[in-house]
Design a protein around this nucleic acid. Structure first.
Lengths: 210, 210
DNA sequence: TAGATTGTTAATCGATTAACAATC
DNA sequence: TAGATTGTTAATCGATTAACAATC
């Protein structure tokens, strides 16, 4: 009756399963056990079986999991076949990296617009797409039915731009800035937190050396 | 006698405390309670007090925490004042973004070399540093005593380049590629996992809309 | 002093691991 | 059938929350 809520810790392991299954498929391996997946992912076999069983019984006793079948199921679970019109806001190096990143398109994020406010880049092409003036952002987002935005603007502008995106009806934001966004709850914000990752690395360096 | 091991979940919250304290200092707020930090960070006040007490009693009953003092302590704990000679491997958009990123230098990661194997970029300047041929990488790393590498090469080359870095005595790698690196245990690898973050966003989009 | 808020212990909650019956 | 490995329950472990005495 009720689908039980799946914890965020489980969700965040799914991408790794998916990637490892892609790798296995690429080298023509058609079956895999939770034990083998454990070696590949670093999670325990028990954990893997429990994680997957949140979504269905994809395995078979005495056999393991069929690589292609499990991969296809994870693809559906992660929604990787759903295509979303996406824009990149901020056409600096980071924005350019995203716009040129093939994995982005493969995951269903279809970049249909790139915005920047600098005269220097407006009109230039990145990954085959011409950079538009941020001033036209809201209109373009509505016209092209853009639901996802990648945010790569400077920290100082992040909150304001994010609010503008939400006003234009963007449903989720991939936040590559170092700002924490404060938006209404129904907006999905996925933070990459580059700076936190870097600080964590600094911590481990300090712990290990001196 | 024994310093108890501090869990990774605690460590990964420290950067956010630090950033919020920086923000407070910037607007001239000199004291803060765990309750106020809770609002700023989204962690509970109880959690914050427990986290901080892993490292020392930085607060004062009836008063809270002194912003500057706590920030300075976290700075030491995170090792942000320790300077590390760092190289960027891969001078594409992502590598350029890192090389130009001010927060990188602020955190003590001093970029002293950038490598790429493409003739097109070797010799060009990024963030004031001239891009060197990857062929000279090992020698330069030893000569300049580089201990940290930022990896932004294509997925296919990530493992090989990482191994080369380790041979050259690099101690830790900030991994911005979509590859999972397999290196000896004493090498510190901090994965940013952009692709996993993206897949997670895809999952939440799917859950919410259809 | 009275009020506020920490530091810290105890209680609860959730996630991971272990174990094994079911079954391919 | 015998062997392998899942799906799932129970046990353990660790992290979060609650509570409050200590004390500024």
């Amino acid at each position: 009756m009720e689908k039980k809520k799946i914890s965020i810790t489980v969700i965040r392991r799914l991408p790794k399963y998916y990637r490892k299954l892609e790798d296995l498929e690429k080298i023509k391996i058609s079956r895999v056990s939770s034990q083998e997946l454990s070696v590949l992912t670093g999670f325990t076999a028990s954990q893997i079986r429990q994680d997957l069983n949140n979504f269905g019984g994809f395995g078979q006793q005495g056999y393991g999991y069929n690589v292609k079948e499990l991969k296809d199921n994870l693809e559906k679970i992660l929604g990787l076949k759903n295509v979303h019109n996406t824009c990149v806001v901020g056409a600096g190096n980071l924005g350019s990296a995203v716009a040129n990143f093939k994995g982005f398109d493969d995951a269903g994020f279809k970049i249909v617009a790139i915005f920047d406010k600098s005269e220097d880049v407006i009109g230039t092409k990145i990954g085959g797409i011409s950079v538009k003036d941020s001033a036209d952002m809201k209109k373009t987002i509505k016209d092209k039915d853009i639901k996802i935005a990648v945010l790569t603007v400077p920290k100082e502008n992040a909150q304001d731009v994010a609010e503008e995106l939400v006003e234009a009806n963007v449903k989720s934001i991939w936040n590559l800035t170092t700002a924490d966004l404060d938006l209404k709850d129904d907006v999905i914000v996925e933070d990459v937190s580059l700076i936190d990752s870097l600080f964590t690395l600094s911590y481990f360096m300090k712990e290990k050396y001196k």
